[in-house]
Amino acid sequence: MKSRIERKFEVLKSRQEKALIPYITCGDPDLETTVSLVLALEKAGADIIELGIPYSDPLADGPVIQRASQRALKNPITIDAVFDMVEELRKQTMVPLVFLVYYNSVFRYGTERFLKNCSESGMDGLIIPDLPLEERRELYEQMKAYPIDLIPMAAPTSEERIQEIVQVGSGFVYCISSKGVTGKRVTFEDSLAHFMTQVKKYASIPTAIGFGISSQEAVTKLKGLSDGLIVGSSIIEKIEEGILAGDIEGKVFDFVRGLHQAIE
């Protein structure tokens, strides 16, 4: 059976549309807000939603998402509480959900237990930014028993590794737009188009670009290069504005609505 993520991309493709994939951190600033934010994101036009599990040492993340993790960890947030939240969400929406989770969170919790809870609570995929190809194979085999996609990540520096990277995974290929950590980029290198050509040459699954996409302009510019776009840090900044203004959902909704219009 096809995964919810694959079906979502198929539907979008048949309509000649691209996937908008916003990112938020679970528990930023609390788990109740995360539930209402997911619903707001879906309403604003999100096709897949990436949920970060807050981590003390997020080494692939820039300062904005680090702040989100730190805000979330101010409360004693547990992985069990995150699964409970996903169960709660699944009573209200069937939008595809993927975790952005650092490997230590999975490993320490217990990989088998983590996968079981993912599938029981209704998660659709995992993105693990510190689990490159060499370390991913074992988990990939293990995950075949579960209806969860292990989303492979490719980078502009991957070069000859791309061919194998895209085969050890499913759902979509997370294409890292440029060197560096998450967070706004002023411009994107011309080589991004070449990189995407390379990925598409080998990938039999859809592609989505992430890292640094922060505005409607960037969305307009990049949407032709892939099947989807991932937006993270700039949404977290809207959450921060919303915390100050006392209207998190409103700030985030308006911003993502704008991104959705740009991607259509």
Partner: peptide
């Protein structure tokens, strides 16, 4: 080698 893909090469 538990690092982001960008560093692997």
């Amino acid at each position: 080698q538990f690092v982001p893909e960008t560093l692997m090469n």
